[in-house]
């Protein structure tokens, strides 16, 4: 099949790939660019483990043809921390036992980031509503809700400084 040239901007850096046009953003991120922090599970947009940010909106990268990400800003779990330190959301997931096997965690972190970008002080109900597109099979979700609350509180403090 004919390949198409595709420039991509991932986590602030520019990449150039030549790909078959039907390939998903998930596969290109994982297989061509090595961003394996974004996970693969259902490949049909049901589980949320492949969630990434595209121009500040979360998407299931398993459903998006990579060519549709041309010219857009892609952020993956590898790209959300500004430095070597964990991002406050990442730190909160560790502190609050918001993960066990961790396979769903990158997707939850991307969704939580989108939530907190929109709403700096969400209620538990708002958290649960926003994160309903991500499945977790280990935690029972208590720790995830706690993590998002802690992260919200930390980010509010940081934003005030």
């Amino acid at each position: 099949m004919t390949k198409v040239p595709l420039p991509l901007k991932v986590n602030g850096s520019d990449y150039y790939v030549e790909i078959e046009p039907h390939r998903t953003l998930l596969d290109v991120l994982r297989e061509d660019l090595g961003f394996t922090g974004t996970k693969e599970s259902c490949r049909e947009g049901e589980c949320g483990v492949c969630t990434v940010s595209l121009d500040n909106k979360t998407i299931n990268s398993c459903l998006l043809p990579a060519v549709a990400a041309r010219g857009k800003e892609i952020i993956t779990v590898e790209g959300i921390a500004a430095s070597e330190e964990l991002h406050p959301i990442q730190k909160a997931f560790v502190d609050c036992h918001g993960l066990q096997c961790g396979f769903c965690t990158p997707g939850f972190i991307m969704s939580a980031k989108a939530l907190l970008d929109e709403n700096e002080n969400p209620t538990e109900e708002e958290i649960r509503s926003y994160l309903a597109g991500n499945l977790c099979r280990c935690t029972g979700y208590n720790g995830i809700v706690d993590a998002v609350k802690q992260a919200a509180s930390e980010l509010r403090k940081l934003n005030k400084v």
Binding site: T38, V77, V94, P106
Partner: peptide
């Protein structure tokens, strides 16, 4: 805190699928 937490929240943890 669990020892594998930081690797899992940064996407560095390697699973069979990876």
């Amino acid at each position: 805190n669990r020892l594998d937490g930081p690797d899992k929240v940064t996407g560095k943890f390697v699973y069979g699928a990876d």
